[in-house]
Each structure stands twice: as structure tokens, then as C-alpha cells.
């Protein structure tokens, strides 16, 4: 089947029930989308599916074939997306494993709502777990972009 990822078309040979996550990782070698739970609970595998933040671990590749997929690798060519830059400005990551998913959720939020309230930020980001506890800085980085930042974490 055909799959459109980061603006590029791929011919993919996979069982239809294969979650998009494993096609991205095992077949297309796009390793930035990460496995965390396999059940759409943790958000580590978040990609944009027709612009909507979507957990790739529960999206069958047969359904994904119908739309446009953007992964962290396609968010910008060189890491220059404003969310990626804000993440670096605020030194958000610790281990970094969940951060591609966090960045995909945050960029989708800001694409549809340029100045989210604090509640809207928490609402949009609560599907993404960070076990290192970078939440204060995730909030600060998004508020920075939303123009609502009072001060950085700590």
C-alpha cells in the first residue's frame, strides 16, 4: 500500500493491521517516533495525521494510508520549527525519549490555537507522559510561543 509521510510517498509491504508506529520504525527507518506503551496512553509515538496529533501505536497502517502523516523528522528540515527552538531555549528535555511526541503534540496545539490558555495547554499535553518530569518547562516553552510566559521554570 501507499503511505504519505513527510510529503514523500512510500510503497509499504506490511500487514494491514500493523500499527503505523512499527511501519515508520521498522520499514521506513524513521526512528524519531517512539514506542512507550502500545496502547495510546503515553503519547511517545505522537505524529500528525492530517494535522491532528495521533498516536501511531494504535493507528493501523491501512487507515493511515488514507491521509498525510508528519513525523518529528518532517516537522522541519533542520530542527528550526519554533516549537523545537523553544524546547532548546528552555532546556526542556532530560532523557529526551518522550520529547518528539511532546513536540508533535505542542506543535499541533499551536497550529490550531496560537495563544492557548494554561488550561488548554494542560489539556492538549496531558496525553503525553514525561517520566523525567519536564512538565514545568514544557509549559514554559509553550507559553513562550503563546506569548503568555511570565517567567521560565525556576
Amino acid at each position: 500500500m501507499k503511505l504519505t509521510v513527510n510529503g514523500r510517498s512510500y510503497d509499504v509491504d506490511a500487514e494491514p493491521d500493523t500499527p503505523l508506529l512499527w511501519v515508520l520504525r521498522d520499514e521506513l527507518k524513521l526512528k524519531g517516533t517512539r514506542y512507550g506503551c502500545g496502547d495510546a496512553i503515553c503519547g511517545a509515538c505522537t505524529v500528525h495525521f492530517n494535522g491532528t496529533p495521533t498516536r501511531a501505536c494504535r493507528l493501523p497502517v491501512s487507515a493511515a494510508a488514507a491521509g498525510e502523516i508528519v513525523t518529528i523528522e518532517g516537522l522541519s528540515a533542520d530542527g528550526s520549527h519554533p516549537v523545537q527552538e523553544a524546547w532548546r531555549r528552555h532546556n526542556v528535555p532530560q532523557c529526551g525519549y518522550c520529547q518528539a511526541g511532546q513536540i508533535m503534540s505542542a506543535s499541533a496545539l499551536l497550529a490550531r490555537n496560537a495563544s492557548p490558555s494554561d488550561d488548554e495547554i494542560d489539556g492538549a499535553m496531558s496525553g503525553n507522559i514525561c517520566r523525567c518530569g519536564t512538565y514545568p518547562r514544557i509549559r514554559a516553552a509553550i507559553r513562550d510561543l503563546a506569548g503568555s510566559e511570565e517567567e521560565g521554570a525556576s
Partner: peptide
């Protein structure tokens, strides 16, 4: 001093290599 992590750029672009990324 607050030297940023050497892996910061790779983490924010998805390029950082974790255990499952080795093939």
C-alpha cells in the same frame, strides 16, 4: 555554568539514538 546538553539538538529533532533505534 548552564551549559546546554550536548544531545539537545538531536533530541528535539528525533535524531537521538536510544536502545531501540539500533538496527
Amino acid at each position: 555554568r548552564d551549559v546546554p546538553m550536548v544531545d539537545l539538538h538531536d533530541i528535539t529533532t528525533g535524531a537521538a539514538t536510544y536502545g531501540a533505534d539500533v538496527e
